[in-house]
Design a protein around this nucleic acid. Sequence first.
DNA 1: AAAAAATCTTACAGTTCTGTAAGATTTCAT
DNA 2: ATGAAATCTTACAGAACTGTAAGATTTTTT
Lengths: 220, 220
Amino acid sequence: MKKILIIEDEEIVANELCNLLNNSGYETFLLEDFKDAKEEILKKSPDLILLDINIPYKNGCLLLQELRKESAIPVVMVTSRNSETDEVLSMSYGADDFITKPYNPNILLLRIAAVLKRSGSFSEIQTYKELEIHLQKGIIKREGKEVILTKNEMIILNYLLSHQNKIVSRDELMTDLWNNDEYINDNALTVNISRLRSKLKEVGYPNAIETRKKVGYILS
Amino acid sequence: MKKILIIEDEEIVANELCNLLNNSGYETFLLEDFKDAKEEILKKSPDLILLDINIPYKNGCLLLQELRKESAIPVVMVTSRNSETDEVLSMSYGADDFITKPYNPNILLLRIAAVLKRSGSFSEIQTYKELEIHLQKGIIKREGKEVILTKNEMIILNYLLSHQNKIVSRDELMTDLWNNDEYINDNALTVNISRLRSKLKEVGYPNAIETRKKVGYILS
DNA sequence: AAAAAATCTTACAGTTCTGTAAGATTTCAT
DNA sequence: ATGAAATCTTACAGAACTGTAAGATTTTTT
């Protein structure tokens, strides 16, 4: 259950927000001002902070700015309509999103969900067609079938994946793999590609990596 | 140089957008309607698509929906004010963000930059204090000094990192590492933590991982 | 059609990874 | 303070990883 810290001084708005979020399956805490914010954040370690930009004692942007020095907790700013300067400011201070008051509840929920999804997306699962790719664990999965990739195979697959629909040159891949520190047999890449291919074949994608002779490879 | 595909039928708006983005260092292509969108996307492989929801022949949401079946290219929807339904729809179809017309150019640029940053954040660098952590490559760096981590060490560090300020139990870590498939010597975790610690020490963080006896570990 | 170039596959051996075990150290409860 | 429990460290050996080499295939060039 995801925890959301709401920092909002207008009681009516705050209660509305709490209710809305609670009903959507979030756990909420409320702070009415900035005073104990840092301590509370450490103690409760929320998954997301919903921060009104106009809180007493301190501008929300400042809190955001301080917070960002030590934490990457996702922050969604709540701003008033027509205060576009605030929006610009909060984005550049590292807010993950912002909502203008008065907000549409559905949009608020969707945006919060989107931010949470993103923020968890490190160490999360990427997909290619029906394939699940678990970046760090180095496993790929399809319909229950699971294959373990080595680090090199993972680096190659990830590089291809993040350049989908682009042809990736052998040099690019070699730089990504070995940084050209020392000379490495140019065939080492071919071998690693070959190994990756045979693993992709095991999960039903025998032709995922296409060779474009004299140019490079592409994820089809 | 990042490439942005603009799908927009109002010529004035389209030109404005192109100019704005070109001046900010993006390369732009323009499509006025949906017709050749899919082909064009494949051919040009833009880094981001700016999609007006009201384009001729087809609703932008439908294009988005189709696109999402085969590609994860970031999409920012352009909607008209007061069409909140559209916003809800486009978010749930997988838009990465949306902008309402008339838009503030600065905000548009910031949002585009934010979306691009996120979308590239797979395979990117995470940080902990002054430490750079390269997820897949399994290396950590500080002030030029670089240490190679093994897969297990990386999994542990990443888990701790994504639960900063939370105590992480030994069970959680063991589940993350081995999924409890088979019995694994409970000491294996301790050994891996120990190895990770000695590598963190090498880059100047000897006490990054604190033991909370009988509870777990925490990244200080 | 033949030769050259590019890419692929397989097997191998040195290196790295990693769970185990055994004993050391730290913390906690009494 | 003392013993028990929890955690830590080190060394080790089997397993996995990975670059090399040698030869096979495919594509391109002449």
